[in-house]
Design a protein around this nucleic acid. Structure first.
Length: 524
RNA sequence: GGCGCCGUGGCCAAGUGGCUAAGGCAGAGGAUUGCAAAUCCUUUAUCGCCGGUUCGAAUCCGGCCGGCGCCUCCA
């Protein structure tokens, strides 16, 4: 029996049971970036949620192949590289590396293929030729256009018809038969990067690479096609037109679209330029940082996504994105990241607590990799009964269109249950009951299992310490020692003074029965 | 104008017909602590407004108010 996963399908505008085209094999295609500028946090929404979706499908026993394309030839790239005076491939390479670094930082490592448009030109040309041969496309003076009037189903994804389009004129419009027709191949202008084709030198249109590369890597019909909501029209609508006219069968069974990131004031982060404003062609993180964080003007300075990652950590950003449902709009703010970081501290402190009382690192626990492996019988155990219930609630949320927002709430429930158990049975005291410790270990293993599904807590977070760790550590230990003597003498004035002054510089002390722990407060 | 989305406690945010409306952040009180920190417990919601359907609606339908996305290339 198939796991009861349901997904919201943009194509049918409703939630449907997830049943792959081909038994246990699943193909996912996500529209990736056009690499003409550095990535901003909005570009990470899709990769993070689809990374999580793949993890969840694998966990449920599916054999998943995930493709994310890189668009490395396009008008923006041509313009930007010209403006910077560097070759387009060099610009593309630079921005692709930036993109990949950001993916790594956010723990996105499930991608199987990252095809580049420029590496699939022959595939693309063959695809276009097929469309011409079948009468769905026509060539005019070196341009090739898709003829929407030949596609009876054109507009089905977004519930609109080509007859309703007005078209906006423009230079290429004169050569099109209908304003709604779109370019498959663009003839090269003087000095532009180009490839030879049956229609003369030129480059692929915006949509065709996805049709051609998804076919090459996933087949004519695959399971999930994803992207940002801003891509639904025209990009995905046109992909469907191209692929389904060419193959005579559905391109993808499920169309999943993630919501866009916005900042409070106005304007989305990502997607294309605003229509009316005519302002900058896209909002980069610099704009947002300037709007939301400039007033605090830390010495760090507000920069791009890399700066956000440096200041908050990739895990915080990932968790921030997963705390809402993927289809909803995420309002970006540094306050939101601050809150997320504060919330994550609960987990990090728990991991330290667990290690302190068992000597075992949370990160060394081996969790079940498959859903059925993780099933267990609580056998009446007080803690495990509760853990079992929480695990089920977590999985129910994930089954329901990958509701990571609901699922994360169960992670908090779980860590609280575990803390409560430690408190109630005094597991931090010397004579802790081994049976209780074993139950705890099993409970914590479930926390590891579930958090892994979200790509969280896979390795210890890089702590932003902002200084020389070793020296700071020695000095703090020294002060703790001095303070311990003071406390023995009941000289609480001195003891409190040390703690207060350390607190002022961001060092938090925690007195425990067996000694004093310290940690650096998260930056703020 | 066309297609579509959203409005849940101070803030963020799950929940789309029926147990006491998740969870986080912030705040308050308590247990614990020499005092703190951490942890645990307690605590804040007539679900934008009006009307309708229903035994029953945050959840479905209609209207209104407010916010937003998309409506090709040329950008």
């Amino acid at each position: 029996m198939l796991p009861p996963i349901e997904v919201y399908n943009t194509l049918t505008r409703r939630k449907e049971p997830f049943v792959p085209v081909d038994d246990r094999r699943v193909g996912i295609y996500l529209c990736g970036p056009t690499v003409y500028d550095k990535a901003h946090i909005g570009h990470m929404v899709g990769p993070v949620i689809f990374d999580t979706i793949k993890r969840y499908l694998v966990y449920n026993g599916y054999d998943v192949t995930w493709v994310v394309n890189i668009t490395d030839v396009d008008d923006k790239l041509i313009q930007r590289s010209a403006a910077r005076g560097i070759p387009m491939p060099e610009l593309a390479r630079e921005m692709t590396e930036d993109y990949l670094a950001n993916l790594r930082a956010l723990g996105v490592d499930q991608i199987d293929h990252m095809p580049k448009a420029t590496e699939h030109i022959p595939t693309i040309i063959a695809f276009i030729q097929q469309l011409i041969d079948r009468g769905y496309a026509y060539e005019v003076d070196g341009d090739v256009f898709f003829d929407v009037t030949k596609d009876e189903e054109y507009g089905k994804l977004t519930n609109r018809s080509w007859q309703s389009f007005q078209g906006e004129g423009g230079e290429a419009a004169d050569r099109k038969r209908h304003p709604a027709d779109f370019a498959l191949w663009k003839r090269a202008k003087e000095g532009e990067p180009s490839w030879d084709s049956p229609w003369g030198p030129g480059r692929p249109g915006w949509h065709i690479e996805c049709s051609a590369m998804s076919k090459a890597l996933l087949g004519e019909t695959f399971d999930i096609h994803g992207g940002g909501l801003d891509l639904v029209f025209p990009h995905h609508e046109n992909e469907i037109a191209q692929s389904e006219c060419c193959h005579g069968k559905p391109m993808a069974k499920y169309w999943l679209h993630n919501g866009l990131l916005k900042r409070e004031a106005a304007g989305k982060v990502g997607g294309r330029a605003e229509r009316e404003s005519g302002a900058s062609e896209s909002l980069t993180y610099e704009d947002i940082a300037a709007a939301t964080a400039a007033k605090e003007s830390r010495s760090k300075g507000a920069g791009g996504l890399a700066d956000l990652i440096a200041r908050y950590g990739g895990e915080t950003i990932r968790f921030f994105l997963l705390r809402t449902h993927y289809r909803s709009t995420v309002v970006f703010s540094e306050q939101g990241l601050e809150e997320t970081r504060a919330a994550l501290e609960t987990f990090y402190r728990f991991f330290q607590r667990y290690e302190r009382l068992t000597g075992q690192s949370f990160y060394d626990l081996t969790a079940p990799q498959r859903r059925e492996e993780g099933d267990f019988d609580p056998a009446g155990d007080e803690l495990l009964e509760e853990v079992h219930r929480i695990r089920k609630a977590f999985l129910d949320h994930m089954d329901d269109d990958f509701n990571t927002g609901g699922a994360t709430s169960q992670l908090f429930e779980l860590v609280r249950a575990l803390n409560r158990y430690i408190d109630r049975h005094q597991l931090e005291s010397p004579g802790a009951d081994s049976q209780h410790l074993e139950s705890l270990r099993r409970g914590v293993t479930v926390l590891r299992e579930l958090s892994s599904l979200l790509g969280l807590f896979r390795s210890p977070p890089a702590r932003a310490t902002g200084g020389d760790d070793a020296l700071v550590g020695k000095l703090v230990e020294l002060l703790i020692e001095v303070r311990a003597d003071a406390r023995k003498r009941k000289d609480f004035e001195t003891a409190d003074r040390i703690r207060d002054r350390l607190g002022e510089v961001g060092v938090v002390l925690e007195d425990r029965p067996d000694g004093t722990d310290w940690r650096l407060e998260a930056e703020h």
